[in-house]
Amino acid sequence: MPIDAGSLHFAVGPGIALVALAVIALFARWAFGSGSTSRPVKAEELLTPVATLTRRESALALRAVLSDAGIRSTIREPAAHRADVLVFPEDLARARALALSFGA
């Protein structure tokens, strides 16, 4: 049986596959989307600086002191010879008290 050269039957399979992928993509976007139209919050906006030190080693030592007190913290290095120690707002008062007694 000869195949008609003007027929588009060869495009049916890939067309169905593209439609199926589009449906799956839309479903995944709906199912795993955040549901919020506001911009995502960056981690730096959640954390508050408690101290700015000139050496990374000093910042690591202060972070160890905070950790021993049960305060979660992290270090940000925005420029050379500058290290900020950041904590969550609920721990800020205790962290500042420990940072003032820290002799780096």
Score class of each variant (00 low, 15 high):
55 R>E: 13
41 V>M: 09
92 L>Y: 09
96 R>F: 05
6 G>S: 10
1 M>H: 11
27 F>D: 11
45 E>C: 01
25 A>F: 03
37 T>C: 02
65 V>W: 02
74 T>Y: 04
57 E>W: 06
45 E>K: 03
92 L>G: 01
17 A>R: 11
6 G>P: 04
71 I>N: 00
50 V>I: 15
98 L>N: 04
79 A>L: 09
10 F>R: 13
94 R>W: 03
67 S>A: 15
87 V>G: 03
80 A>P: 10
37 T>D: 15
98 L>I: 12
8 L>S: 10
10 F>D: 05
46 L>G: 09
22 A>Q: 13
50 V>M: 04
31 A>T: 08
4 D>A: 11
56 R>D: 07
56 R>G: 08
97 A>Y: 00
66 L>T: 11
92 L>D: 10
25 A>H: 01
45 E>R: 05
62 L>K: 03
36 S>R: 14
91 D>Q: 11
56 R>A: 15
82 R>W: 02
51 A>Q: 12
46 L>K: 10
29 R>A: 12
93 A>E: 11
3 I>L: 08
51 A>E: 14
37 T>G: 13
51 A>S: 08
100 L>P: 00
92 L>E: 12
82 R>G: 12
58 S>M: 05
62 L>F: 07
64 A>R: 11
59 A>P: 03
10 F>A: 08
4 D>I: 13
2 P>I: 15
53 L>N: 08
9 H>K: 02
35 G>S: 09
24 I>T: 14
82 R>Q: 15
67 S>F: 03
32 F>I: 01
23 V>N: 02
21 L>N: 08
18 L>E: 06
23 V>W: 12
95 A>M: 01
64 A>S: 06
23 V>R: 02
87 V>T: 04
79 A>N: 09
67 S>E: 14
16 I>V: 15
88 F>W: 08
38 S>T: 15
77 E>Y: 06
59 A>C: 06
78 P>W: 03
78 P>Y: 09
45 E>Y: 01
66 L>E: 12
16 I>M: 13
85 V>A: 02
80 A>F: 02
66 L>W: 08
76 R>E: 08
86 L>T: 04
45 E>A: 10
10 F>E: 09
14 P>H: 05
3 I>K: 06
61 A>E: 14
39 R>Y: 02
23 V>I: 15
74 T>I: 03
24 I>D: 07
95 A>E: 00
41 V>F: 10
87 V>L: 00
78 P>S: 04
67 S>T: 11
29 R>W: 08
38 S>H: 08
19 V>C: 13
19 V>W: 09
82 R>M: 15
94 R>S: 13
90 E>A: 08
35 G>T: 14
96 R>G: 05
73 S>Q: 11
47 L>F: 11
67 S>W: 01
11 A>P: 00
101 S>C: 00
85 V>Y: 00
59 A>D: 07
81 H>V: 06
18 L>R: 07
78 P>A: 07
71 I>A: 01
12 V>G: 01
51 A>L: 09
77 E>G: 13
19 V>D: 04
7 S>H: 15
95 A>R: 00
22 A>C: 15
58 S>D: 13
78 P>D: 01
41 V>A: 12
